[in-house]
């Protein structure tokens, strides 16, 4: 039924190892009958790119918008809020939280923390109190994907650094590898701390690492990421390899910086300053 190289390789691999060989072979055998062939494809409306990137226009960013963006992302992706009061009836034995074990996908940082290699004694006044938004940079040479021993975090062909929560063993090597502190670990079951679960997106289980996935699930449906939607023009997401794209036009017309460029990871998130 399903004819794809991936599934063939997978079946072959599983059979070779001899783990759970029986169901896999049965499944492969069932391919022979049936009226047609099952195929797995992208939604025709999906947004595609050669390399997804993000431009954050700090001129359009203010306290309110930054907060809206963080909130929109947190709510949509079921990110636990450790300040949330736990429903004692639903989750009776919830232990007290350690706030240092929080989860963050996109959050506010001051210039000195966001750009540690651009320490400036006489920083322009307007940057001093500005809240920069930081998130996963979806680096071109991502050290996290290199570190992962199971390919649970990997680089998609379109440049998005993805997390496969089904496969992650929770070794946290990727967290040590990330130079931007963009990764969070589920030290505990996050559900008691999610104010309102969004049924459109899964929660995570304890023991896996998570981070921003550039709203891969939205792009697949032809929608813009939540941060773009909530950002009122402060965040633009588009194809960095396409010279005509909005992100490239913006980068062409403005001076932009990236975080820790000197490390050579090639972040795909640009800041117009």
């Amino acid at each position: 039924m399903i004819k794809s190289r991936r599934s063939f390789l997978k079946v072959a691999g599983i059979a070779a190892i001899g783990l759970g060989a029986a169901p896999a072979i049965n499944f492969a055998a069932s391919n022979s009958h049936g009226t047609g062939e099952a195929v797995m494809t992208k939604d025709p409306e999906a947004l595609l790119a050669r390399r997804w990137g993000m431009v954050i226009d700090t001129n359009k960013l203010d306290e309110q918008i930054a907060q809206d963006i963080v909130k929109a992302c947190n709510n949509a992706h079921n990110i636990p809020d450790f300040n949330h009061e736990v429903d004692k009836e639903k989750y009776p034995d919830t232990r007290p939280v350690n706030k240092k074990q929080e989860i963050k996908w996109i959050w506010e940082e001051h210039f000195n923390y966001a750009f540690t290699d651009k320490e400036d004694e006489f920083l322009a006044e307007k940057f001093k109190n500005l809240d920069f938004l930081v998130t996963c940079n979806h680096c071109k040479n991502a050290p996290c994907t290199q570190a992962c021993p199971t390919q649970a975090t990997f680089k998609r062909e379109d440049g998005i650094v993805m997390m496969d929560y089904h496969r992650c063993i929770g070794c946290r090597f990727c967290m040590a590898a990330c130079p931007f502190g963009s990764r969070s670990f589920n030290f505990r079951d996050p559900r008691p701390f999610i104010p309102k679960i969004n049924p459109e997106y899964p929660t995570r289980t304890k023991g896996v690492v998570e981070k921003c996935d550039l709203c891969a699930e939205r792009l697949a449906r032809g929608e813009q990421p939540y941060c773009v939607e909530a950002g009122q023009g402060a965040i633009i997401v588009g194809d960095l390899e396409d010279p005509e794209s909005e992100v490239r036009v913006l980068l062409n017309e403005n001076y932009s910086i990236r975080r820790k460029q000197s490390l050579g990871t090639q972040p795909s998130v640009y800041y117009v300053v």
């Binding site: 190892i17 290199q146 570190a147 021993p149 199971t150 496969r167 063993i169 946290r172 896996v208």
Partner: peptide, 26 residues
């Protein structure tokens, strides 16, 4: 110590199931 440090110890065999020669842990 490696096993007790894992967040999902029951999935430890994924390291063999999806060998990743780019990872030093491998």
């Amino acid at each position: 110590f490696i096993i007790v440090d894992l967040g999902q110890p029951t999935r430890v065999l994924n390291v063999l199931l999806y060998p990743s020669p780019k990872s030093i842990l491998f």
